[in-house]
């Protein structure tokens, strides 16, 4: 039996099929959670934002049009939810990388995981929010530039530029940390 697409499943759920939602949730729970976790860095905040994002998706099901790609729609809702959260925390201006860096993983976890991965995560956390958002949408969610542009509400060139800056910055940070991290 052929696997149903995300769009079909979402439409089916909007029509009242709970089973369709369970399949859809199972498909996207991991990537969406990690996307939010990388942005928030703090697991507790990430859990709240993750739950809030799915609640918004559930509530917006009747407005979903099956002609639109589901992943772009889902990440857009999650992106807006996370950005709203940080705007509420810092109403005066943008969230700075330092704000994000405060939400580092627990020290115990750091010791338990591989140092190289920790370095990479730390480097990602140090990126400016827009660059980090774009990079995670690319490497975690696997979205193309056009979809990233739609999700973040910018044009394609801006999204591409952010991604390039993010990569160059990571290269710079990880290159200065010695042979542990190779790019």
């Amino acid at each position: 039996m052929r696997e149903r697409s995300d769009e079909q499943l979402m439409k089916s759920y909007a029509d009242g099929n709970m089973e369709a939602f369970e399949i859809l949730y199972e498909r996207h729970r991991g990537p969406l959670y990690r996307y939010i976790l990388r942005l928030a860095a703090n697991p507790a905040t990430a859990n709240d934002l993750y739950q809030g994002s799915w609640e918004k998706i559930v509530k917006a099901r009747s407005r979903y049009k099956s002609s639109a790609p589901f992943r772009a729609w889902m990440y857009r809702i999650a992106h807006n939810h996370v950005m709203d959260h940080f705007r509420r925390l810092h109403p005066a201006g943008n969230t700075t990388p330092d704000d994000m860096a405060d939400n580092q993983a627990e020290p115990d976890e750091q010791l338990a995981t591989d140092q190289r991965q920790q370095d990479l995560l730390a480097a990602i956390h140090s990126l400016p929010p827009e660059q980090k958002d774009t990079l995670i949408l690319k490497i975690e969610a696997g979205l193309d530039l056009q979809t990233i542009a739609e999700v973040t509400g910018v044009n394609r060139e801006t999204a591409k530029s952010r991604l390039r800056y993010a990569v160059n910055r990571l290269k710079l940070i990880l290159g200065n940390q010695g042979p542990r991290t190779e790019i």
């Binding site: 991965q117 690319k138 990569v167």
Partner: peptide, 20 residues
């Protein structure tokens, strides 16, 4: 930079897959 992105992506995929 596109090549560097591929390397980063490969390293990133080796990270622990956090689940909710």
């Amino acid at each position: 930079w596109e090549r560097d992105l591929e390397v980063i992506q490969a390293n990133y995929s080796g990270l622990e897959a956090n689940e909710p």
